[in-house]
Design a protein around this nucleic acid. Structure first.
Lengths: 346, 346
DNA sequence: CTGAAAGCGCTTACAG
DNA sequence: CTGAAAGCGCTTACAG
């Protein structure tokens, strides 16, 4: 039966108990070859017996490398951020790193410098910035991004020069959803957007707009209603669309919650989906398959996004520690895919 | 404009630049009173100029206290775990701690000892065990819980002697939902459970059963169908209930996803909700208000649960560092509440 | 194959 | 009010 030593056992105590130097203990711990077999065995026995557990802090101090990455994400119970975090954590662990987590509770206004300074004080080897781009909450990157002493990789923001960004192509997602509606014969397609200070939100909207223009149905302003990712904004939004754009025969809801709200409002109003109104969403949350009717939506490789960001970050960290100064800031764009279900099948 | 020093500046460099000893610099940093005003000013200026940032690792090494807590949670994009994590992170930050995050990807089988050892190596001051109780994945606590060298607080598990547990009363939640259905006049109430190896799942089921017994309608086995938290299991579950329990006039779905699946299946079968079938859920996910029809469900104070767990943990840590050996392992039970909506309003 | 000694960046009695 | 020195737990040239 294994237990845990009540007190921190030090390498010195192990050395003393095994009758060797701390250096020899260190050699054994780190699997160095230059230790006599009997010595190694003796030391290993003492380690097990005393339940010695190396102090990573001391090790990091010497190596000037903590094998920890800082992850800054938006505080959210939503499917998107949570799923990305799962991908991030898994790959972090797989690659032998630890994860210091920091949530921004007000992504537009929280003090970025403070967060970064705390992470740097903790000697993280790199930072994964997984906060959505909202308003000008990326302005600090131009101001001080270049002066960051450690690698930082950003998720889901407008690509910038020399800033490594990993993102899912929201514009393409908007196009996929809208072109699908067009291909089904819908022509009067409204949109309920996410909050328009979100960059990703505007990308989805742009995809919708360009698709309609390409199809020869250039949209008017009254086809656009701003939402805020919530189902409530979907329910309100669809009402507003009916008022200002009565021809409406389909709606692109910029996330699945908005779509859900629109669906409920349609049912309440006695409209049939998709016969009277087709609805397409975005995100493919697990629930969307069980909406009434099942929702056509855009799937995003979120776990993969998180995992690949961590991969890129640790690769960069390793390169930096090998003193390769000329590491390229490489950006990656992942493609979403359309999932067709009943809500658009008239 | 603030920038970040390219390299780690040490206290020694600050001392040299300011013409004082490192001890004096340390005094200034830690706000000690015994520094001459001019000296303090001079040191502060150098600190700002060099952008000195203390190395927390070195500090933790000396204090034998990292001001970091380890949080072990289940890898999940679901609303419950994510929301709890938000509460945990926020309070951790408020209390001046940092958060080392660890997800269990297989909560029934992952190697607990390995996880704890890594956290201990990182010198966390305490651990918050936020993994649900599944199967006998709590067996290790009896085996080695008492030997843990640091405070550990557990979330959402069956209370044990001398083990501090914070949880939401799932049994009460099950009663609230079921008694509500009974009060509405429903008598043939089925249940679609969560996975029955989850303790919380069994609690909800017990609440349902006891409510029915108290009401003089002792349930039969054919009224119970096992689910797995997924909407799919809700859709399948309701079909099964119709087959084996045709009298069914209401169903208690043990989470909102299951309820969603049941709702869709009901619509597909042409049954009206709540006239032909009332549906109550559990969790009150934000979407549930926009289900069709809006879902009656049980709300849980999840953010509060996380926050209070962190409070309790840090209080324990502080007490331990003040060397109060006799800290009581205090458990807290939070009450859920019923949210009544259209799905049970016939 | 092994160990004494210096050092990572910081703090802390202790002495003045 | 200030500083020289020891030390937190570990690793690493270096010498043997």
């Amino acid at each position: 039966m294994t237990m845990f030593a009540r007190k921190q056992i030090t390498i010195t105590q192990v050395a003393r108990a095994a009758g060797v130097s701390t250096q020899t203990v260190s050699r054994v711990i780190n699997g160095r070859p230059d230790v006599a077999p009997e010595t190694r065995l003796r030391v290993q026995r003492v380690i097990e017996q005393l339940e010695y557990r190396p102090n990573i802090l001391a090790r990091s101090l010497i190596h000037r490398r903590s094998h920890t990455i800082g992850v800054v994400a938006m505080a959210s119970s939503f499917y998107g951020p949570s799923t990305t975090l799962v991908g991030i954590e898994k790959m972090t662990r797989n690659l032998g790193y630890s994860l210091l987590l920091d949530f921004m509770h007000h992504p537009e206004s929280d003090d970025v410098e403070h967060i970064i300074n705390r992470l740097l004080s903790h000697q993280v080897d790199g930072i994964l910035w997984a906060v959505p781009e909202i308003g000008n909450n990326r302005a600090w990157i131009t101001r001080m991004g270049a002066y960051l002493p450690i690698p930082v990789i950003y998720l889901s923001m407008q690509p910038m020069n020399n800033v490594p960004v990993l993102l899912i192509d929201n514009y393409l997602g908007g196009r996929l959803a809208t072109e699908h509606l067009l291909s089904r014969g819908y022509r009067y397609i409204g949109v309920i957007t996410g909050p328009l200070d979100w960059w990703e939100s505007r990308q989805r909207l742009d995809g919708w707009r360009d698709s309609l223009e390409d199809a020869g149905c250039p949209p008017e302003a009254r086809q656009i209603v701003p939402g805020n990712w919530s189902a409530a904004s979907g329910a309100d939004g669809i009402q507003m669309l009916w008022q200002q754009f009565p021809e409406l025969d389909a709606v692109f809801a910029c996330n699945d919650q908005i779509a859900l709200g629109a669906l409920q409002a349609a049912h309440r109003a006695g409209r049939r989906v998709p016969q009277d109104l087709a609805v397409a969403g975005f995100d493919n949350i697990p629930e969307s398959k069980y909406f009434w009717p099942a929702l056509t939506t855009v799937d995003q490789p979120l776990v993969d996004l998180g995992a690949r960001a961590v991969e890129a970050l640790t690769r960069w960290i390793s390169a930096q520690h090998r003193d390769e100064r000329t590491v390229e800031a490489e950006s990656i764009l992942l493609a979403p895919s359309l999932v067709v279900r009943d809500s658009t099948l008239a």
